[in-house]
Design a protein around this nucleic acid. Sequence first.
DNA 1: ATAATATGGTGAT
DNA 2: TCACCCTATTATC
Length: 268
Amino acid sequence: MPEGHTIHRLARDLNRDLAGARLAATSPQGRFAEEAAELDGEAFAVAHAWGKHLFLEWTRAGLVHVHLGLIGKMRRRAGCHEPRGSVRLRLAADALCWDLTGPMVCALIPDAERDEILARLGPDPLREDADVDRFVETVRGSGRSLGVLLLDQAVIAGVGNVYRAEVLFLLGLDPRTPGRALTEAQARELWEEIRRLLRIGVRLNRIVTRDPSEVDATPAKMRSADRLYVYKRDECRRCGADLRTDTVGGRSIWSCDRCQAVAGQAYV
DNA sequence: ATAATATGGTGAT
DNA sequence: TCACCCTATTATC
């Protein structure tokens, strides 16, 4: 379930388990075998997350770029048994393993390539050093819609299709609203709301946008169907109207015509 | 058994 | 806009 929250949580968990340790590195599936052999037995330094990108740094041996894509996963395996499924990369410490399956990208790269990747990414609300002003200026200077802008990793790094739909609902903004229709305060509010939601996502290791007090359950215990407001739903939770679905930026988005308006225009 | 689906992204048309 | 890549899980026949 990889939007930015997944990657940041993963980096945190990897660091807790593996930072500073000598790791066995293997590629049970075989497609990363040569590279794993170079890393095998070397000291792992640290994991970093930036948007949906994960960077694994070794002290001497190199730098691995991981992007989970739609279906990739990195799972902790206590006990380190025979790998299940097709594991591209296994990092093994004494009593536990981390197994990477189905990544869109898993590559040993030079530092310069990481710099290029980071240069293409917009600010990441989960990073303390994020440049909010850059986000605000990009959005307010654009004629593209908020629905398109939020999926563009060069505009803001880490938002995916679920957070996009949910944050626009929460702020009452129609996904078709052009970026330049937002006031500066609205653009900042958009950033802050995304940051708030992503942080909850990191903490719970899943996307939860609903207020748990509406659900009568602790966030971690909320059933999956209760965690969201609009994504993939038929009806608006607030007003009961049928949600509209559009394709915006090549992906489906759900929104409520009664609860979400194009900024600056009256509700229909 | 086979198909559909998935919170992503790229490269060709 | 479409085809395609990566894999696991769930739905349908």
